[in-house]
Amino acid sequence: MLELKNIEKSFGNVNVLRHINFSVDDGEIISILGSSGSGKTTLLNIILGITQPDCGEIRFNTHDITKVPMEERGFNIVFQDYALFPNLNAYENIVYGLRNKPDISTPDEVQDLIDLLGLREHLNKNIEQLSGGQKQRVALARTLVMKPRILLLDEPLSALDGVIKESIKEKIRQIAKEFHLTTIIVTHDPEEALSLSDKVMILGSGTILQYAKPDEIIHAPKDGFVTEFILRQLEIKRSNILALFDGGEVRTAV
């Protein structure tokens, strides 16, 4: 279990995060949802270990890891732009971590991952030959080879379109289940957050506005912001899509 207690962070005079308290159970998928400037990236960086909080405590399985450096926490991340190494091909990217820790995954495990993510036919390709979805899957595979204790995903779907988005969502769910892997997703898209995760944390100007199951957020929004921006956005989307299916003929008739 990951617990954050009373985390605070400011840059200069700006309070980026205030009174951050929450916990994530093992194997859960949670989303941190917020607009730009809400502090979600800073929170991600604090969990990962890039940024030190000003005060507060991070515990993982009851150990205090607040001061443990990034590479010793055993967490791992897939960045929004994937950060794949263009001088290496897809396969060399996937097994990059084995150069430093040869025993972390067995050859069979690596092969299973490649199949799970459907990458077998792309292994010898250069990075620039891969599509967005393929890059995302290579980055996921590269991270999963390291057997992270927590998987962090920074805007994993924002660079992908339509159908690919849905298939990557499915893969993320499948991975979390199969490896019983705690997964923390950062996103600005309510639809993504609510349809993908077990719990959603809505962040607004540095504080947690609501942290609950998607169902609860939809039916019992706790805050004006949540209703105003998150729910309204989804409702507009819903009515637009419904109009497409139901009212299509009416419109063309007009």
């Binding site: 960045f79 950060a83 190494f85 001088n87 990059y96 150069r99 991270t143």
Partner: peptide, 27 residues
């Protein structure tokens, strides 16, 4: 060049120098 390479490589066990030799320099 991609700003996240060092972090990514460090999470996979690279030291800074290793990342410079293996990733930054070839690019």
């Amino acid at each position: 060049l991609n700003a996240s390479w060092e972090t990514t490589a460090r999470l996979m066990g690279d030291s800074w120098l290793k990342t410079v030799v293996r990733i930054i320099t070839p690019n």
